[in-house]
Design a protein around this nucleic acid. Structure first.
Length: 723
DNA sequence: ATAGGGTTAG
């Protein structure tokens, strides 16, 4: 027996135990063997349990608890130094509450606490919620034992109090310290920083510089991170200068803190320069750069940082996927998600939310169903924000039926965002009554609407021209719900009044605002003027808008539209020349169509599709047949003063018409055609698609920039109240 | 035998 046991024991004592099976195996051996001297077994076992605790302290709680039970069941109970070192490991691990537990066991077993016990327990208590209660008790115990002036104890107390939100008590202890070294200063400074007291952070740092303690790299990292959080670029730069002047060693953490600080203080070029100097690219710095470039819409810059990373973690992947999802590149987002999956990186909630919003933007039912299935099969199905995102996605993919299904399945989990997503969904499909009904139901269930709920409701009103109801909702928002209207609410009202051709009232409304109108508000008025051919007020609105944003392309496009409608070609030419001089580009219209799970994208005049020839032939045929039914191309949206024939071509080659013809080619009578357009559908295309739905007997669903149009038998769900 | 500092991000 001894001969077979010995080598196993030896192998256990010379290597670290890292897994529970290891420990269990050893435990079993020790319990079975009778040959070990009874006195040495417990101590050996306790040591081995410790060696496993070191690595297990950050793993799953069940593994940890097993090792802990081995530790606490050794007899006699482990002595104080042994317990102290266990406390140390537990305090820095993933389950600091277990340190508190061991401390309780220690006391219960009559083991004395010494000055070495306090720092680890305090550290653990600093990381446990509500730990300050036991922490202050411990404070008293330590004072009674005469350790009051022990710098290790005091530093631990400062940290414990500060991280429990008791910064003032922490400061009191700090002020009582007879000797404050760089660690003590760091803990106090960090305490202010974590507590959001950035002014105090920087003040204390200044105070430290006046004392005889010299700042080191760690304290500088803390201070730089305070500059980051408080967006204090100038102080951050000063610290950076100090670091260079004093030749402080810039390690990983410090470099990281500097890059993050520059990124968040919108000094992205400086951040990039520093990043380029890093010998090893750190994930955190890289990810914050990716996110910063994403916010600026610089997709290629974000991607190049991302591509350089060798070991990408989930956050890096998620940031890049979100970058695409938020920058009008839903297909790239899905592609990247797929690559991530192939590499075996497991998505989390944040990733999934980005992917759902990419699917929403794409507007393709096939993909919507795919991600929904993914959600259900990967354990995200009960997460409220995920379900809310699914509701929004289905609405944006044209299916209120599916949106409702998700909504009803949520039952008791629904929150204000779930309801608001449903209301917004009905609004975008022009079902105002559905939206109002949901609102009543929501109130009946006691869910308080928020400002976004009201934006959605007003939006529903403006899509059907419900002027009276809109006023009513706007008033009740203020009086009943005490929500102060924001730019968005005023924008909806201006939109509502403007579309209803109450332009003067819209202007009055703008003038009644308690704060200056913004670009969006003037834009709403301007587009209403375009709709109703109102030149004078349109010019006024455009002038106001361009004063706020001289680069605004939409204003110039709309203004030239108004002039074109009034056949004021010289004015059109002037505006266009202005646009060209300023390099203003009109966003190109594009339309997507989904056929058998494949997405085809068309631009205006597009001739790149493999079936271009057939598509244009079909277009000729469709135009011919529609003309027989009385279709006359409406040229009023054409900006340029061309010959009539040329204008016709410009109108007929709009991307949605090309997509539609491709759809007719590839579908049968009685089927659905689903198109997503990035801009608004023009008036001519609107008429054109209505006629196609009748002549070719197709149901056509078009999502444009602001809403859905369901065309069937020559009629559109928007009842032509749109634009 | 055993003690105090920076892990940041969506």
């Amino acid at each position: 027996m001894a001969a077979t046991n010995q080598p196993i024991l030896l192998s256990f004592t010379t290597t670290t135990i890292t897994t529970v099976p290891h420990l269990k195996q050893l435990h079993a051996h020790l319990l079975r063997t009778t040959l070990l001297p009874s006195s040495s077994a417990p101590s050996l076992l306790a040591h081995l349990a410790i060696s496993s605790l070191t690595t297990l302290s950050s793993s799953s709680s069940s593994s940890l608890d097993y090792a802990l039970s081995v530790f606490t069941h050794t007899s006699p109970f482990p002595d104080t130094p042994l317990c102290n070192s266990v406390l140390r490991d537990l305090a820095k691990g993933a389950h600091p509450d277990r340190a508190v537990w061991v401390y309780a066991r220690m006391r219960g077993e009559g083991r004395a606490v010494d000055r070495f016990s306090f720092p680890p327990i305090l550290k653990a208590l600093a990381r446990v919620r509500g730990g300050v209660r036991e922490g202050s008790e411990l404070h008293g115990v330590a004072l009674k034992m005469g350790f009051g002036l022990d710098p290790f104890l005091q530093t631990g107390l400062v940290r414990m109090y500060a991280s429990s939100g008791c910064v003032f008590v922490a400061r009191q202890v700090f002020d009582e310290m007879p000797l404050r070294d760089v660690v003590a200063w760091n803990v106090m400074i960090n305490g202010y920083c974590q507590g959001g007291l950035y002014d105090d952070t920087l003040l204390l740092f200044e105070e430290m510089k006046r004392s005889d303690v010299k700042p080191d790299k760690m304290i500088l990292a803390t201070v730089v991170s305070a500059c980051n959080r408080s967006r204090n670029l100038s102080f951050g730069r000063e610290i950076h200068d100090y670091i260079r002047k004093e030749k402080v060693e810039v390690d990983f953490h410090l470099q990281n803190a500097l890059v993050t600080m520059y990124v968040n203080c919108e000094a992205i070029d400086t951040a990039r320069e520093l990043y380029e100097q890093m010998p090893l690219k750190n994930l955190v710095a890289a990810t914050s750069l990716v996110m910063a470039y994403s916010k600026l819409g610089r997709i290629e810059a974000a991607r190049s940082i991302f591509d350089e990373l060798v070991d990408k973690d989930l956050v890096a992947w998620s940031a890049m996927i979100a970058c695409y999802a938020e920058s009008d590149c839903p297909q790239e987002a899905l592609k990247l998600f797929n690559e991530m999956e192939i590499l075996g990186v497991r998505a989390d909630q944040v990733t999934v939310l980005s992917v759902i919003s990419a699917c929403a933007e794409l507007g393709v039912m096939d993909k919507a169903k795919w991600i929904h299935n993914y959600v259900d099969h990967n354990g995200f199905g009960d997460i409220v924000p995920v379900n809310n995102a699914l509701i929004d996605m289905y609405a944006k993919c044209g299916s209120l039926v599916n949106a409702r299904e998700v909504f009803y399945k949520m039952s008791s989990l629904r929150n204000v965002i779930s309801w608001t997503s449903m209301i917004a969904g009905h609004a975008m499909h022009g079902d105002a009554n559905g939206a109002f009904g949901l609102f009543d139901q929501m109130k009946a269930e006691g869910i308080m609407p928020n400002n976004v709920t009201f934006v959605s409701l007003l939006y529903a009103c403006s899509h059907v021209g419900a002027v009276k109801k809109g006023h009513q909702i706007f008033a009740s928002m203020i009086s009943e719900y005490h929500i102060a209207p924001s730019h968005e609410h005023y924008g909806c009202m201006v939109d509502l009044l403007g579309r209803a051709n109450l332009l003067k009232k819209a202007l009055d409304f703008i003038e009644s605002m308690p704060f200056p109108p913004n670009v969006v508000i003037w834009g709403s008025l301007l587009s209403a003027c375009r709709l109703h051919g109102e030149v004078e007020l349109g010019e006024f609105a455009a002038k106001q808008l361009l004063e706020l944003d001289p680069e605004h392309d939409g204003a110039q496009v709309l203004l030239s539209n108004i002039y074109a409608k009034a056949k004021r070609w010289e004015d059109v030419v002037d505006v266009r020349r202005l646009m060209q001089n300023r390099g203003v580009m009109k966003e190109k219209g594009s339309s997507r169509i989904e056929l058998e799970g494949k997405v085809h994208e068309f631009l205006m005049f597009d001739r790149t599709h493999e079936h271009t020839k057939h598509i244009y032939e079909k277009l000729d045929e469709v135009v011919f047949r529609l003309k027989m039914k009385g279709y006359v191309p409406d040229l009023s949206s054409v900006l340029v003063d061309l010959e009539e024939d040329e204008k016709k071509e410009v109108v007929l080659w709009h991307s949605e018409k090309l997509a539609l013809c491709y759809g007719i080619l590839n579908s049968k009578r009685g089927s659905y055609i689903h198109i997503v357009k990035n801009l608004r559908v023009c008036e001519d295309c609107h008429t054109f698609i209505k006629l196609v739905s009748k002549v070719y007997e197709r149901e056509i669903i078009v999502r444009d920039r602001t809403r859905f149009h369901h065309y069937r038998d020559g009629i559109c769900s928007c009842k032509d109240y749109w634009c």
